[in-house]
Amino acid sequence: MKTHVSTVVNGDAVEFLCSPSDTLLHALRNEIGLTGTKEGCGSGDCGACSVMLDGALVCSCLVLGVEAQGSQVETIEGIAHQDKLHVIQEKFLEHAALQCGICTPGLIVSTKALLEENPAPTEEEARYYLAGNLCRCTGYDKIIKAVMDAADVMRQGA
């Protein structure tokens, strides 16, 4: 038996059907068609499926789709405004903070959450906040540089 779920994703009202056992990650990717959110582990250990759920940064593989009923979900697809990239996205590109790019959506969602919570993180704070986002390509160096640079620019803009 599938359950009907009404939710808001990136500001758009969305309705979908899912089994109560389906995760939000599954619903986003397979029911709503938003494949920008990636699955790396399915157990909350890699952060590739990071999304915002009612203002909290979560792994969408550790949320049931039915829990999204009446919630606000934000995914990587909602971060740029049409063709205008968010500063964080621009800085990831400028600093070559991605190689293969599979962890990038999750990292950008997490970085946005970090900078909304703490607009002036130290490098160490950024590294700990983002510890749940695994990247196997970059060694994190350029990611952290992109995050710190984005934080600077966002503070100046604020």
Binding site: E39, E77, T104
Partner: peptide, 23 residues
Amino acid sequence: QRTIRPDGFDKVTGKANYGADLS
């Protein structure tokens, strides 16, 4: 030079299609 990679936009916006993304 340190140019912006041409596939970058798709990869920072979630548009790029990886192995599990095709149905």
